[in-house]
Computed example of a mutant assay.
Amino acid sequence: MEIKLFNRWDTTEVVVRDPSLRSYINIRPIIVPHTAGRNTKKMFDKVKMNIVERLANNLMRREQNTGKKHKALKTVEEAFEIIEKRTKKNPVQVLVEALENAGPREETTRISYGGITFLQSVDVSPSRRLDIALRNIALGAQYAARRNKKSFAECLADEIIYAAKGDIQRSYAVRKKEEKERVAESAR
């Protein structure tokens, strides 16, 4: 029997093109992406968690969604259906492309030297890059769904599709990435 995500989408054909993110994006076949916190005990064990589950966990960020993982998984499943209808591609592949485009490669850190504080440009580790991309995609969908006729799943699907295309005008996550990289470039 072939294992498919939500019994619909095959994750074995998904390709991660970015070599730095390849070992951090887990797309192993799983039916329901719910590990019940199994991978939170050790540092860096979140790498073992399926990327779809990590997206669902990031959707539970705001007060009204806290702890409602089943609701978050249903929202992700609905968003994946919308993505599949619009793009005619595997929605997990579209999510991976969105994460590759939404993760900043460079950001700034504060350095104090002799009482003077200044920003210094630093490279971003692949793990943090993925965390920032997931967070910004989730936040972009939440901001878009606020006071909007569209459902949250539609807003999430829009955010993922626009981030996969690298659309700076429409995607909150890509816009934030470009902003961080611009600040880092000026701090070089």
Rank of each mutant, 00 (worst) to 15 (best):
L139S: 10
L139C: 05
G140P: 10
G140F: 01
G140Y: 01
A141V: 00
A141L: 00
Y143H: 03
A144H: 00
A144Y: 00
A144T: 00
A144Q: 01
R146A: 06
R146H: 13
R147H: 15
R147L: 06
R147Y: 14
N148W: 10
N148G: 06
K149C: 04
K150H: 03
S151D: 01
S151P: 05
F152A: 04
F152Y: 14
F152S: 05
F152N: 01
A153R: 10
A153C: 07
E154F: 03
E154Y: 15
E154L: 02
C155E: 04
L156G: 13
A157K: 11
D158Q: 13
D158I: 14
D158P: 12
E159H: 15
E159L: 10
E159F: 14
I160N: 05
I160D: 03
I161V: 13
Y162C: 05
Y162D: 06
Y162K: 09
Y162W: 14
A163T: 06
A163N: 03
A164F: 10
A164L: 05
K165W: 11
G166A: 12
D167C: 04
D167R: 07
D167G: 10
I168S: 05
I168D: 06
I168E: 06
Q169C: 09
Q169L: 13
S171T: 10
Y172A: 05
Y172S: 04
A173W: 01
V174T: 01
V174S: 09
V174L: 07
V174E: 10
V174I: 13
R175P: 02
R175I: 01
K176H: 08
K176L: 07
E178Q: 07
E179N: 03
E179D: 07
E179F: 00
K180R: 12
E181Y: 12
E181K: 14
R182S: 12
V183C: 09
